[in-house]
Write a protein that binds this DNA or RNA. Structure first.
Lengths: 99, 99
DNA sequence: CAAATAAATGAATATATGTTCAATTGTATG
DNA sequence: CATACAATTGAACATATATTCATTTATTTG
């Protein structure tokens, strides 16, 4: 694999590698959520959510859309959805325990 | 999604989120590689590779097998392979540029 | 058993980064 | 236009962590 590709992929993984940030993204998996909703669901301040959303948006992992006073965030595309759903599946399956 | 699941998934993403570490794992994608090979391929010291491999192994992302003086590492299972290959595909596809 | 090679370990360090808090910007509405 | 609500921004801080270097452990072979 190419060096640049590795760095690019690592950046994506890195963003998804923080529990708070991952919670934020998965919160937006089903349907668009506004910052307040996300903050309440994940259980952190709106400020923190906003900080994280900025990074996620810059990396094209989420999309933003303003509706009146609120800004709604959704996962950017089906790629992101699949990556997350695959990983959720992966973890859901039983682990192989060695003796 | 459940809190514990989120943390567990974030841990996996986090491990794959470092360029050096991701390089190490992808290096082991095709076939088992020993530490020296990995170090040479990725372009870092064997010590550093070893440090990272310990984390990757603890998280069941890679498997170790000693053959004489060398220790060969491979991706732990098809899940890991698929996650990596999916992500590589994802990045390979052209980005959608907004106006 | 001694020497050589491969890998792992531990301590130390420099850096990155998640979080908080206060202040600011944007939007609707009385 | 002023108030209220939602979201963003910036600075400051505490913590986590990637890397280096020196040392040690494991394994083969002369």
């Amino acid at each position: 694999m190419v060096e640049d590709q590795t760095v690019e992929i690592a950046e994506i993984f890195h963003l998804l590698g923080d529990p708070t940030r991952l919670g934020i993204v998965t919160c937006c998996l089903d349907k668009p959520r506004n910052v307040g909703e996300i903050a309440a669901t994940v259980g952190v301040s709106a400020s923190l959510v906003s900080h994280h959303l900025r990074l996620l948006k810059a990396a094209r992992l989420v999309r933003a859309e303003r509706r009146g006073k609120q800004v709604y965030y959704a996962t950017a595309d089906e790629h992101v959805d699949r990556i997350l759903k695959d990983m959720i599946e992966h973890v859901a399956e039983p682990h192989r325990e060695d003796a």
